[in-house]
Design a binder for these strands. Structure first.
Lengths: 240, 240
DNA sequence: AAGTAATGTGTCATAAGTACATATTTATTA
DNA sequence: TAATAAATATGTACTTATGACACATTACTT
């Protein structure tokens, strides 16, 4: 490094009034939920850090200076899965001092809902796989805590809002929908009462079609009313 | 700056693998809610930036490298109000690229609930004042958006959880409690139905005492059951 | 002593939630 | 081809929660 270069660097440092404050990196971590084989799943990658050998971690990356939080989340989704038009919601910020072994990293956790079967995922990495949420015990970093937090928020969210449909193909039967609720909430629901409740919410359109790939009496197919369809929409109206 | 010092600085820079990523500052902003004169209020300071002359802003500060998010929030609360044992909850992270005129700052918003009258606030600054939430139209930065977001979350929270009591003195009448709910939710409630609902929740202990400073028939005084008392407790079990 | 204003309680109608049973339709099996 | 199995589809009775509403009581004020 030449004297000239050093001077430039020095100027750069001086410009930053409190270097201390810029000694913290910011990342985004995405909890990507999917639903397959009657199980809620999450997309994880094998950790490449020695400290966490054998453990899995969420998909995340540091935020670039010219992108906002949601742009960064969408970038990660695109880079890792090839998907663009997915449901995304901010869950929580995690900022423990020692949460990252290489230094101070504050992360902002988002969760995303994906229809595994419909979207052809272009998984960017051969150690990137779907894992049943229920089976996950330990993860790298504080990612188990992040996962649990996102799952809790998802549980609250699906009860109130019509977001669960982002995990299903466009057309689905009421049985499939019920099984998905059961997988997310971890409870068994009464079929008759479930149907009553769903019909009261008035979220669905009857497609006048039937299932055709089931080994039993096929059920009617429904889709979400267009007005609730959030697949292609930025969920959060909040980005300041 | 000597050659030696330059070399040290250079080493420091080299150690940071991607300087770009450390060009973002992180702050915490606190929406400090209080309740007085039958109004929900928020503690604001006059902005000292020229861009926002005449506008008010939330209390916030950059996070230090050795403190986690909640520690930073509590530090701000302590520095600004002298209070320590208050309810605090994380609301949302805001990371818009241009949200701060002096550079890239991502902020994590917390809201806090304070009993204005009981705690003797040591307001650190003479331009620090309580403002009725309903009257606030414009604020500095994106702080109006942050305030609105926190208010929404508070509204959801008080319906489900016994947190509203952090805004009241230890002993209170059902009328005071109802008025507080009305102020937060922005609705009028039926007195008889309200009392029924509260009694079902079984949050309160009858103190067998009466109001004594009211110009009408005094009501019974209640307090929150100890098991729900969160005043001295870190709310968030989540800090990774 | 009468008036005023708020406290404190109760009822009824309606809506929502819960437990539970039977008929129907399709695929499979004998 | 007929019986069987398994899932769909729907309805009813009971309980609980919600919302609208009325009246007696108590303490302060005039």
């Amino acid at each position: 490094m030449t004297e000239k270069e050093l001077q430039l660097k020095t100027a750069e440092i001086e410009k930053i009034s409190h270097l201390d404050y810029f000694n913290i990196a910011i990342s985004v971590d995405c909890v990507i939920f999917g639903y397959d084989e009657k199980e809620l799943k999450v997309l994880l990658i094998k950790s490449d850090l020695e400290e966490f050998a054998g453990l899995h971690s969420l998909l995340g990356d540091l935020i670039k200076t010219d992108e906002d939080l949601e742009t960064a989340s969408y970038r990660i989704l695109r880079e890792r899965t090839g998907l663009d038009d997915v449901y995304l919601a901010q869950a929580h910020a995690f900022g423990g001092i020692d949460r990252h072994p290489s230094g101070r990293v504050i992360t902002i956790a988002y969760y995303s809902l994906i229809d595994i079967k419909h979207h052809k995922l272009q998984l960017s990495h051969n150690e990137l796989n779907w894992h049943p949420v229920k089976a996950i015990k330990k993860m790298a970093f504080d990612h188990k805590l992040i996962l649990d937090t996102c799952l809790e928020q998802l549980q609250e969210q699906v009860i109130e809002q019509p977001v669960i449909f982002n995990l299903l193909p466009e057309k689905f039967s009421l049985r499939e929908l019920q099984e998905l609720y059961e997988a997310i909430l971890g409870v068994e629901l009464d079929r008759r009462n479930f149907r009553k409740k769903i019909s009261i919410k008035d979220w669905l359109v009857d497609m006048d079609e039937m299932e055709n790939d089931v080994p039993h009496r096929p059920g009617r197919l429904y889709k979400l009313k267009g007005e609730y369809n959030r697949r292609n929409r930025l969920v959060s109206k909040l980005h300041g």
